[in-house]
Amino acid sequence: MNVKKELYEAFSPPEPKRKEIFLNALPYPKLSFSQFVFSQIKYIRKRVWVASVLIVAAAVFTVCFMSLKAPSYIGLPAVWIISSLTPFLAMLTASEISRSNMYGMTELETACRFSLPQLTGARTLILGTVSFAVIAALTLLSGIFTPVGIANSAIYILTPFLLVNGISLAIFSRFKGKESGYISCVSALFVSVSGILLQGSQMKIPENICNNFCIALCIFGTVTIILTMKKITNGANYYGTHT
């Protein structure tokens, strides 16, 4: 006779008491910052990914179409068309970084373990990587398949991106709700169209003047981005007037 087996069959084990409380009280490993950054990828809205893919696809299409159907336009006109796409990516990136302010989540997010500055840092890291990949793809495409060269292409493509990113971040940090989205969209459209119009006009701007102007705009955009990011990550700015 197997006593152990007999005992097992004769008695049912008692129901565990306070099992839930015990399990909840057990320490568990918390997310590290890198795990937190990865966890935020799925909260980036789909439209950013879709826009990134569409912009690269549109740039490839532009280069292919012009090479085949309008070879005389394959120089600067092609680069300006490609660069006119980047303001929309810049606008989407800025709206994603500033989401907390737009939707009134700053207070809640600031009080969490990974607070608003870390959250903004995580979003910036993810969106910065995506934007860098898109800008790099567009620059290589323009630099290799047009006679403009990689350095000039990089300047012409970065200028509208940085400018609109800076302007949009400033708009989103100042205004809440849908209005900020509309204003930012108008600014993206304005920068996008004005680049093409300027290039299409009969004005012959010397290359060095054009490049210097673009570099100045890049610096302006970058400074605006840095200053606004500082403002966004300082949660106290949003509550300074409340009691």
């Binding site: 997310l31 937190f36 809640l108 373990r113 990974f114």
Partner: peptide, 22 residues
Amino acid sequence: GYYPEFTAQDFMMYIAALKGLP
């Protein structure tokens, strides 16, 4: 506030990530 596309579960999971919960 809350992000408009969030369900109650999404919201809880999002805040849980901010609080460092696996």
